[in-house]
Design a protein around this nucleic acid. Structure first.
Lengths: 131, 131
DNA sequence: ATTGGAATTAGAATAATTCTAAATTTGGTG
DNA sequence: CACCAAATTTAGAATTATTCTAATTCCAAT
């Protein structure tokens, strides 16, 4: 895992949530000979060690994130992600489910500002059309 | 959308969480000439109308579920899903995020009973080996 | 009957990811 | 240092899930 630390740094220092391909291009800046499969190998290994998180949203490639406890806002229109720090639900979920849980993944569906603007524009175009 | 209602019924009456392919085979019982692309067309349309939910877990094909409010237990080892009815977090999430949210998706990571048994067996084999 | 629009079909295409086998690198040992 | 074994990387083929395209079929309204 010669590249594992560099990949961890790329993920840690990114404010976006990068796909395997984006990480691949970032890594290529430093190691031009590296190959996408290696990135997948490293990401899978880091994920298995729980050093990174993997975020799956239907319709989008998997994205990777640092493994700190936080939740995500997901735009229902463009799929963009935003970290959000909410209070930890583990205790409450254990109380409600009645057993020890290993963790959880909370995605909040919303509209990002750009998409909100686009939807409003579309809505107004519709409203003002001749009927 | 000639098959939409049948697909809805298949999803509603299934206690598992079916993949597009499983739904395709179930639908084929009644309509042997139907084709996988049609199932995807119907599922995408039902999903766009919010009549069904789509569940994405990294490493597994998307699965579909009825669109009632409930959460999911996800086995971290085999990916199996189980519905669980927890109290609605919308209010609390709106309070914490400070804006109107459209919904959320909560997956609780755990080990299903079968996988727990397997992990224990593996653990005991490891413990009892000659060192 | 005829037509138009929507849905379905078949199958090719695409995208993401994994797999396989060969080559390379690494670390330990004599 | 030289060698070996193990682990990692590489290249590229393969697989899987899903979407796309174009042709066909279905159905409802003339």
């Amino acid at each position: 895992m010669r590249y594992a630390d560099t990949i961890l740094e790329i993920i840690a220092s990114s404010h976006s949530h990068m796909t395997a391909e984006q990480i691949f291009f970032a890594l290529k800046q430093q190691y031009p000979s590296v190959v996408l499969a290696t990135v997948y190998n490293n990401l899978n290994s880091l994920y298995a060690q729980e050093k990174i998180r993997k975020i799956s949203v239907a319709g989008y490639p998997d994205r990777y994130d640092k493994n700190t406890r936080h939740d995500h806002l997901v735009c229902r229109r463009c799929g963009s992600l935003l970290d959000i720090h909410l209070s930890d639900l583990t205790q409450e979920l254990e109380r409600q489910t009645g057993f020890a849980i290993e963790g959880y993944d909370l995605k909040i569906r919303c509209l990002c500002p750009q998409c909100r603007a686009k939807e409003q524009a579309a809505h107004q175009a519709y409203e003002s059309q001749d009927l």
